[in-house]
Design a protein around this nucleic acid. Structure first.
Length: 492
RNA sequence: GCCGCGUUCGUCUAGGGGUCUAGGACGCCGGCCUCUCACGCCGGUAACACGGGUUCAAAUCCCGUACGCGGUACCA
């Protein structure tokens, strides 16, 4: 049987970084095994529905290079792929369970449920729940007589459908990552399958869809591990074979706990994929990093292309303990991927960012700039934010730098050097360097006495590429203009 | 509280009874290079949660404890 997996996000918000990791593992597993990746939108919660969440999920997956084979956009033989469009399926399934005695109608009001839970809690119950022990005290088709039930149903009384979980049995399943896991059925409550609005809960919809879509492996976050026994029971009651289960370790914030919007601001870790795209991370770098958040190839290699990940990925090598997200490590991956990019690709990336900032430049010039800057940036966007002087004259000079480097003789030395730059041939790094060192010798000063103030004049700052490379890239006109401006401004 | 899952350097991890005085990567520290800042290279810091047990031998197997995380909704 060919592998079919799914990524099934709920459109209650933008695609989360943890969601992307889940999508990625499903994608890698599918591609590795020549299988199919299904995208299913689980929009059964009307209260938390966010209108533009689905398009964000689609766009984020596309940006990340995770292409799905079936989904709401491109269709497929098992559609529709939005749960809101499959309601009839779930209702039929629920009725089937009622008919076979594995589910029942319940008419309890929210108040009645609260009262029941409070009462049990006050009696010292360790876990008040709607289950085999308590359901006989509630208002449902197991305690009401048949006439009353049909009367209520035809009167349109609000009701839900609950799973009837028998007590006293062990529910065991094998998780591909954790091995055998067992729950006692006494710990599983009579889960609501169909809500009073007629829509299914996750548990029902998930099992019904995974079966109808012929999903062979369920790869999802560990937060679902505890509800898996409910799903196993559902498969059993429907008479369906459950898929393989694999629960991925959760991703945490560096301070522990889950990554939240709030923490993201404090700790500088974005939670939404779209933010990584906006900041300018390389999709391949993010994917590479995310792949390693819970998986590794078993040796020392760390830099992987998407294709390499596909050919090496396996669930056997996925770890079982939660992992902390590290923005430093991601930054490192981004640097590595950036530097491995072909020149033309890098130029394209950086130019896109420059255009956004209203900086115009041509590719030829940018290629030369990058030849001296690639090793100095972590993100494509760093060029504009950290080395704007390649595109416009400095608007000021770093104060501490001036204090440290601009001496009494700087103006005189720089003017003299400008004089040499005006006529050197060819105008390149080597010649500029010779000219500077000759001048320093003649003036009986160390070369640094000229180099540092010239850098300040050209860039406004005290760091950056080698001065002579900088001079060559900027060109004669610009260098002369900037040196004159600095002499005028900083004086002496 | 109850149930489940987890626990190797600060972080991501290798390790699946002897080859481990525990390896790699990020970070951090130091050095080299050098006109600055990076890159690169070299070196350093730092871990088997704790307690029992099994065994000739345990980071590796078992039990317990602690801690962390998840679940415990008409949310997914």
């Amino acid at each position: 049987m060919s592998v079919r997996v799914r990524f099934a996000p709920s459109p209650t918000g933008y695609l989360h970084i943890g969601g992307l990791r889940t999508a990625l593992y499903n994608y890698l597993f599918a591609r590795r095994n020549g299988g199919t990746l299904v995208l299913r939108i689980e929009d059964t919660d009307r209260a938390r529905f966010v209108a533009d969440a689905e398009s964000d999920i689609l766009e984020s997956l596309r940006w990340s290079g995770i292409d799905v084979d079936e989904g709401p956009e491109l269709g497929g033989p098992f559609g529709p792929y939005r749960q809101s469009e499959r309601s009839a399926l779930y209702r039929d399934a629920a009725e089937q369970l009622i008919a076979s005695g594995h589910a029942y109608y319940a008419f309890d009001t929210p108040e009645a449920l609260d009262a029941m839970r409070n009462r049990l809690a006050s009696q010292g119950s360790s876990s008040p729940r709607y289950d085999a022990m308590t359901r006989m005290e509630m208002t449902n088709s197991l305690t009401l007589d048949a006439n009353e039930v049909s009367a209520r149903l035809s009167a349109g009384d609000p009701h839900v459908v609950r799973l009837k979980v028998n007590s006293g049995q062990d529910i065991t399943f094998t998780d591909a990552i954790r091995g055998q896991v067992t729950f006692r059925s006494d710990e599983v409550d009579d889960q609501i399958l169909l809500k009073s609005d007629g829509l299914p809960t996750y548990h029902l919809a998930n099992v019904v869809d995974d079966h109808h879509m012929e999903i062979t492996h369920v790869i999802r976050g560990e937060e679902w591990l505890s509800s898996t026994p409910k799903h196993i029971l559902l498969y059993r009651y429907f008479g369906w074979a459950p898929p393989e289960m694999a629960h991925l370790p959760l991703i945490f914030s560096p301070s522990g706990g889950k990554l939240s919007k709030r923490k993201s601001e404090i700790e500088g870790i974005p939670v939404f994929v779209r933010e990584y795209r906006q900041i300018g991370y390389e999709a391949d770098a993010l994917v590479n990093y995310l792949a390693f958040l819970g998986w590794n190839p078993g040796d020392d290699r760390e830099l992987f292309s998407k294709e390499e990940l596909i050919s090496e990925f396996s669930l056997e090598r996925v770890g079982s303990s939660g992992v902390q997200f590290s923005i430093d490590k991601l930054k490192w991956y981004n640097e590595q991927h950036l530097r491995s990019l072909p020149d033309t690709e890098l130029v394209t990336r950086v130019q896109r960012d420059l255009v956004k900032r209203g900086i115009e430049t041509d590719e030829k010039y940018l290629t030369r700039v990058l030849s001296v800057m690639t090793d100095r940036i972590s993100l494509a966007a760093d060029l504009a934010s950290q080395a704007r002087y390649f595109f416009e004259d400095p608007r000021g000079y770093d104060e501490a730098g001036v204090k440290k480097r601009w001496k009494g003789d700087s103006a005189k030395l720089l003017s003299a050097y400008a004089g040499r730059l005006a006529s050197i041939e060819p105008f390149d790094a080597a010649t500029a360097e010779t000219a500077l060192r000759d001048l320093a010798d003649e003036q009986k000063v160390g070369a640094g006495r000229i180099i540092h103030p010239v850098r300040l004049a050209l860039s406004g700052v005290t760091f950056g590429p080698g001065l002579f490379e900088l001079i060559e890239v900027l060109g004669r006109e610009t260098c002369l203009r900037r040196i004159r401006a600095a002499v005028d401004t900083l004086g002496h």
